[in-house]
Write a protein that binds this DNA or RNA. Structure first.
Lengths: 253, 253
DNA sequence: AGCGGACTTTCCGTCAGGCGGAAACCCTGG
DNA sequence: CCAGGGTTTCCGCCTGACGGAAAGTCCGCT
C-alpha cells in the first residue's frame, strides 16, 4: 500500500516534488496554467505555486505573455551539457547533412536510454515522409530502425530485459514475437544495418546503422526514413552505413 | 553580513539547493565527482549526495562508467520542450542549411534571454573560421552580430538596461561607448542587418539579420561568421537577410 | 450590473523531512 | 601499511516546506 495519488503525496521528497513539476510538461503539454500543472504533477496548488516561483527565478520555467508556464531557456542551457546530446550532434551534423543531401529524406540520430531510444537530432526533409518522431522524443526500442540497432548492440542484460517484457505493437507488421526479434537482432549484428519495414507506421520504412564511440562500442544509431514503397533498403544501406562510419570517425578525434 | 558561502548555505530553500546542483555543471565542468560538485554548489557533501541521488533516480544526472556525474538525458528531454529551442530549430534548419550551402561558413541562430544572447543552433562549416560560440552558450549582447540585432529590436527597457551597465570588451574593436552603440543600433533597425566587425575576436566578422515571429516581433537572430578579411558584409547581407526572412515565414505557418 | 466559476496569490500553524556533522567505508598510490 | 582523497551511511536537531483556507483577480455569461 501507500500508492494512490493521495497517499503518495505526503510521502514525497522535496526534490521529487520539484522534479514532478518539470515532468508535468510533455510534448502535448508544453504550456500549462499553474493549476493544470499542479493537477498533472499531483500537487496542491499552493505548493506548486511556490515551486514554480523557484523555477521561474532560476530560469527553469518561464511565463509567456499569455500567462502560461513553459519550460525555460536556462534549463535547456544546462541540459545542453549532457553528453550524447550537443557533442554528439556537433560531431554528427556534417555527415547527417551529407546523407540528407544524398537522399533528401528524414535523417535521424538516436541514443539508447534504458529500454528506450531518444531522438537526439533530426534533419527533416521539406518533402520527406512525415514521421512520428521528433527531437527529444522517446520510443520503445523494438520497432524503429534505430531501436533495432541500439538493441542489437546493447549489453546482454538490456536485451534480455527488453525481450522479456511484452513488445508494443504499432502496426500489423510490428514484430512482437521475441523469437522473431531475436533472430532479427542477430541479423543486424551480422550485417551492421537494420531495416524496420512498416513496423511503426504503414507508410514508412527506416534503414539504420550503428555509430561507434572511440572505444568501439555503439553509442548511437543513424537512420533514414523513407516512403515504404520508395527506394528500397538495398540502395540506402551503403549510404547510411558510410555516414554512420563517418560520424564514428568524427567522434574518435 | 550574511553573504559569504558559509552564511548563505543555511538560508537556502530546498529547491534552490537542487538547482544549485545543476548549476554546478558548465561548459568547462561537464563531468564532476560528487565532492567537486558539492564544492562548486556550495553544499555539504552529505546534502549533495542525497540531492544527486534524487537526480540520478529521475534521470537529471547520470553516472558514467568512470564514476563521474554528468547531466542526464531526461533533463534534456524536458528541456527540449522549451519554446525557442526545438521548435525554432526545426523551423530554421532548412533555411540555415541553404545559407550554409551558399556560404560554407558558420551559420548561427540565437535568441535573447534577459541581457544576453543564447545560441540555439549552429551549423559549423568543416573549413569555416573557428569561433568561440557553441550551442547552449551565453554571450553579452553588445558584441556579437546576433546580439546587436536582438538588442536593436528589444523592448525599450531592455535596451536602456543593457546600455546603462558597462559594456564588456573583447578586442580593441569592441564597441564600449554607449553613444556609439546607440547609433549602431539605430542603424541596425534601419537597415535590418547588423555587422560585428572584429568585435569578438580579431579574426572574425559576423553579419546578422532578425527573425520575426508570427506577430512580427523579433524572436531570434540569424548570423554568418566569416574570416574578417574575407568576403565583405556587402555580399553576405542579402543572403543572410533572405534566409532570416525564410525562417520568419516558416514560423508563421 | 451582477453572478459563478476558474485561476492565482498570500497567509500561517503544524510537523514532516531536509539538513549536515561525523564517522565508517572504500579506494589508490606512495 | 598508512595517508589522502573520495563516497556512503547514520541520526538528532530544527528549519523551512507543506497545504488548507481565504482573499484577490479575471474572465464570460445572463
Amino acid at each position: 500500500m501507500g500508492e494512490g495519488s493521495a497517499a503518495a503525496r505526503g510521502s514525497r521528497t522535496a526534490s521529487a516534488r520539484l522534479l514532478a513539476v518539470l515532468d508535468a510538461f510533455d510534448a502535448e503539454h508544453r504550456a500549462l496554467t499553474l493549476s493544470a500543472l499542479a493537477r498533472r504533477a499531483g500537487l496542491p496548488v499552493s505548493t506548486a505555486h511556490r515551486l514554480v516561483g523557484d523555477l521561474l527565478a532560476w530560469g527553469g520555467l518561464e511565463r509567456g505573455d499569455d500567462g502560461l508556464l513553459r519550460v525555460g531557456l536556462h534549463l535547456w542551457e544546462v541540459a545542453a551539457l549532457a553528453p550524447r546530446t550537443i557533442g554528439l550532434r556537433e560531431a554528427a551534423a556534417p555527415s547527417m547533412g551529407d546523407l540528407y543531401e544524398a537522399t533528401h529524406e528524414n535523417v535521424q540520430l538516436a541514443v539508447r536510454d534504458g529500454l528506450e531510444v531518444v531522438f537526439v537530432e533530426r534533419i527533416a526533409g521539406r518533402h520527406a515522409v512525415p514521421v512520428l518522431t521528433r527531437v527529444g522524443l522517446r520510443f520503445p526500442m523494438s520497432a524503429t530502425g534505430v531501436g533495432l540497432v541500439l538493441l542489437a548492440f546493447a549489453p546482454r542484460e538490456v536485451q534480455e530485459e527488453a525481450l522479456s517484457s511484452p513488445l508494443e505493437r504499432f502496426t500489423e507488421r510490428t514484430v512482437v514475437d521475441p523469437r522473431r526479434l531475436r533472430s532479427m537482432l542477430a541479423d543486424v549484428r551480422r550485417r551492421g544495418i537494420a531495416v524496420s519495414d512498416r513496423q511503426v507506421t504503414m507508410d514508412a520504412l527506416s534503414v539504420a546503422a550503428p555509430v561507434r564511440g572511440p572505444d568501439g562500442d555503439v553509442v548511437a544509431a543513424l537512420s533514414v526514413v523513407v516512403q515504404a514503397d520508395g527506394a528500397g533498403p538495398r540502395t540506402l544501406a551503403p549510404a547510411v552505413r558510410t555516414a554512420a562510419a563517418a560520424i564514428s570517425r568524427a567522434l574518435a578525434r
